[in-house]
Amino acid sequence: MGRNRKWIQICILLAVVILGGWTIASSVLDKTEIPKVGSKAPEFTLTGLDGKTHQLSDYKGKTVVVNFWATYCPPCREEMPDIQKQAAKWADKDVVVLGVNVAESKVTAKNFVDQLGVTFPILLDSKDKIRREYGVLNYPTTVFVKPDGKIAVIKEGLMDEAYLDRTIASVAAAGNGNK
């Protein structure tokens, strides 16, 4: 009887701890927190204009620049050639530039990048899902991800070539320092 009673106590307390822990954990974790500088860049898997699937984790160990853009955003259009130049400049130094087109048709996006001569991978966030996960509200927004997968800089708005060069250099340097 005494043993039985003890087991019942253990079972009830265990059930409460598991149920309570799970609920509290889910209520804390469930808040789809918008990533901030220093937090881990949310993983994504998207199809590119090249027809291939691109995953953020594919580029682990490299500095990744994720640029959210849309064809109807004039500053996106303005900065795109500068990003292209920087992408080419840093290509052989473990820096990857990814353009994420938000919720536009493939034709529209393709037309746009062809017009501007963009050669870095352009991914299609056709469901508007990754934009929401990253909490991007204005275009363009550029997220600089360190080689360890953590966000180093979130830049909202137009970037010029000097800014890009400076930022990429500092993020890449910080990443190498950590190694």
Binding site: T71, R77, Q115
Partner: peptide
């Protein structure tokens, strides 16, 4: 063959075709 599609057609100041909104 669809080569280009603009949802909200317009021209920028350089005379390039652009989409103005989504």
């Amino acid at each position: 063959e669809l080569k280009g599609y603009f949802k909200d057609f317009g021209m920028d100041d350089k005379g390039q075709p652009i989409t103005q909104s989504n």
